[in-house]
């Protein structure tokens, strides 16, 4: 009874109404942009919605696209709760994907399917955690601003991935395409329906676990105190550095896991462009969700929907794919304009 009353209390309804209004404004603005470029916005919009949300294929694509975004967003929530701004999802994803590809290629089909997949996932987790861990250590040992280090390390990760797909891991049969060989068939993530793989379930489970971890455990409690006020946490006898470094490791581990799932579930091989922009979009999804892991699942799905419908836009209107970034930016600006609507924790 009380729960229902709080959920449906007036400010929340008003807030949702406001959100719809700004999203409608964003849609109008982009419609004007489409019109100015000689496209028919009504046809495009109805096409975008009907082919993504009303076809099994479209729903599948949205779920597949949302998987890495959910994991990265949820990971970003953990570090944010510790008061750290991790903008390095991009690099942590890339190193995770690289590690799991390397693991997958060296395993081949020597292991039973289940074990091989677990090793690939663990390799991804490990890779992502290394990448965020470096930034975490630099933060607590050298007091380096983690926003800047994670951001710069994204570019280093991109070069490392490029190096490997052009050199050591390049597929000899790829006719000089910069990509690795495909992982063995037995290492592919099982599919649950159509093209949808197990990854979405892993991502949802991760979100639930993180939510429980942050909300219901002692560690989560100290995490929130550290993020709220590091000095108070010190006085309360909490090992602030330890909490921050663990938060950072977990955050990167989830991004790395996203990389591993992208390889084992979707791409099956690593390219330079694998997962480009997922890290930044995941960060924005977490921000839109007030760093609440449960809400982040929704916001990540919304961003996933936007990117998939962007592909439809490209096909049905003949506009270049860069139009999607413009749509994405307009929608994000609309949400930024509205503001959080409720006090963050």
């Amino acid at each position: 009874m009380t729960v229902n009353a709080t959920i449906l209390s007036k400010p929340q309804v008003k807030n949702a109404g406001k959100l719809l209004a700004v999203l409608a404004a964003a849609a109008l603005l982009f419609a004007a942009f489409l019109l100015a470029n000689g496209a028919d916005p009504l046809a495009i919009y109805s096409n975008m919605i009907s082919s993504t949300l009303f076809t099994p294929y479209g729903i599948g694509e949205v779920l597949i696209k949302s998987t890495p975004l959910i994991l990265i967003a949820v990971g970003t929530c953990i570090s944010a709760k510790a008061g750290l701004v991790n903008v390095g999802g991009e690099g942590q994803f890339a190193i995770g994907a690289l590690f799991s590809t390397a693991a997958g290629l060296s395993i081949g089909d020597s292991l039973p399917s289940f074990m091989g997949i677990v090793v690939m996932m663990l390799a991804g987790v490990f890779g992502g955690a290394i990448w965020s861990g470096v930034a975490g250590i630099l933060k607590i040992r050298a007091n380096m601003n983690e926003t800047l280090t994670t951001l710069i390390m994204n570019y280093i990760a991109y070069q490392i991935v490029s190096y490997f797909v052009f050199n050591d891991l390049k597929d000899p049969d790829s006719f000089n395409w910069p990509q690795t060989a495909k992982i063995a068939h037995s290492l592919r993530l099982p599919r649950i329906a159509g093209k949808i793989n197990l990854g979405i379930l892993i991502a949802l489970a991760a979100a639930v676990i993180v939510w429980l971890l942050v909300r219901k455990t002692k560690w989560g409690y100290s995490l929130r105190i550290v993020g709220g006020n590091a000095n108070a946490a010190l006085h309360a006898g909490i090992n602030v550095e330890m909490v921050q470094i663990v938060a950072m490791l977990l955050s990167g581990a989830l991004a790395g896991l996203a990389g591993a799932i992208e390889i084992a579930g979707v791409e099956e091989r690593l390219r330079q462009t694998t997962g480009v922009n997922y890290g930044y979009l995941g960060f924005l999804a977490a921000w839109m969700a007030w760093n609440d892991p449960a809400v982040a699942v929704l916001t990540a799905a919304v961003i996933g929907f936007l990117s998939v419908s962007g592909n439809v836009l490209e096909i049905s209107s003949g506009l270049p794919s860069s139009a999607i970034s413009i749509l994405m930016a307009i929608v994000l600006f609309a949400i930024l304009w509205k503001g959080k609507g409720r006090k963050s924790e």
């Binding site: 930044y280 924005l284 970034s325 994405m328 930016a329 930024l336």
Partner: peptide, 15 residues
């Protein structure tokens, strides 16, 4: 500021 900045980056690169 950080979220707005990232969005501005997307807008600039996309536009």
């Amino acid at each position: 500021q950080l979220a707005t900045g990232l969005t501005l980056m997307f807008l600039g690169l996309g536009l």
